[in-house]
């Protein structure tokens, strides 16, 4: 039966572990004369991470990811609560959250470009209604990127919160109601604290992909919003500085792993 695991193990070693090892090695080499990498070994790529220019990109990515996560929580918690209280329609409402998530991330991001661009639907409508005279600059800014991230990753917030709400013992809530607690008090004093593991898991699950996002900031930011993902892509393509790109990638991976460790203890079951 050991043979069953072998193909997957070889694949993972070759195409996941080995590439990460290569990136580790590249991050410690120097930039080659014609792109690529070369000797001597050097830690310069890591010291450059502290350059204010690059440090500020990390800070900005953190802020964008934090705002996206907060907005997802603001939208996701009430939605999870709504779904858990909708009786027989639960599965339908849940499916309506998950379905758009799996239908082409690229297409869904493009849909926002169609809405927000200068000649897009929102501007056209506002112009024809006479509310504005000039098209509003809705696209190619951080606002558009955040909208795209929230839109893309909202299901990651809703699902874990929904799972924890569903596990709450109904009798606890009934007891509070019998003792005269108002619905708002029950929500803030009982439901929210009992959902804390779900809220934490959801927040990390939204924060991680937002932090490393590339497609959303590139399309909705139009090259005007440089986040960590764009920086990495740029170093491996246009700038051709693979050692520095590798160092940035590893720092991002390290941040992701630290965030995961934060919720790992709360979330023992897991998918695998």
């Amino acid at each position: 039966m050991r043979l069953c695991l072998l193909p997957a193990a070889v694949l993972i070693l070759l195409l996941f572990v080995a590439p990460l090892v290569i990136v580790c090695a590249y991050s410690l080499l120097s930039r080659g004369a014609y792109g690529g990498v070369g000797l001597p070994w050097s830690a310069e790529s890591y010291t450059r991470l502290f350059d204010p220019l690059y440090a500020s990109i990390f800070v900005r990515s953190f802020v964008v990811a934090a705002i996206s996560t907060a907005l997802c929580l603001l939208l996701g918690f009430p939605l999870a609560l709504f779904i858990s209280r909708s009786g027989r329609r639960k599965n339908l409402y849940l499916a309506l959250v998950i379905l758009p998530f799996w239908t082409s991330f690229l297409v869904r991001t493009y849909a926002w470009m169609f809405l927000l661009r200068d000649t897009g639907l929102v501007n056209t409508l506002l112009l024809s209604l006479g509310i504005i005279r000039e098209p509003l600059p809705l696209l190619y800014n951080y606002g558009a990127v955040i909208v795209g991230l929230v839109y893309g990753y909202l299901p990651f917030m809703v699902l874990p919160i929904y799972a924890t709400i569903e596990r709450i013992d109904r009798s606890v809530i009934e007891a509070a109601a019998d003792l005269g607690a108002k619905p708002w008090t029950i929500l803030t004093q009982i439901v929210v604290p009992l959902c804390a593991p779900g809220i934490a898991a959801g927040s990390v699950l939204v924060f991680i992909p937002s932090l490393g996002a590339y497609l959303t900031p590139d399309l909705l930011g139009g090259g005007k919003t440089i986040l960590v993902g764009n920086l990495i892509q740029n170093q491996f393509t246009t700038a051709r500085d693979w050692p520095f790109g590798s160092a940035v990638s590893l720092l991002l991976m390290a941040l992701v792993m630290v965030l995961l460790l934060l919720i790992a203890r709360r979330n023992q079951e897991g998918l695998l």
Binding site: F16, A18, V23, G212, V256, L272
Partner: peptide, 29 residues
């Protein structure tokens, strides 16, 4: 082996796509 596979697959699910992409590119080259 099962633990190795489980933890690396889990890690692959949370690795930012851009990191997986550039590391594969570096590996191929």
């Amino acid at each position: 082996l099962p633990n190795f596979i489980k933890s690396t697959l889990y890690l692959s699910l949370v690795t930012p796509e851009i990191v997986m992409g550039v590391s594969l590119l570096a590996f191929y080259q």
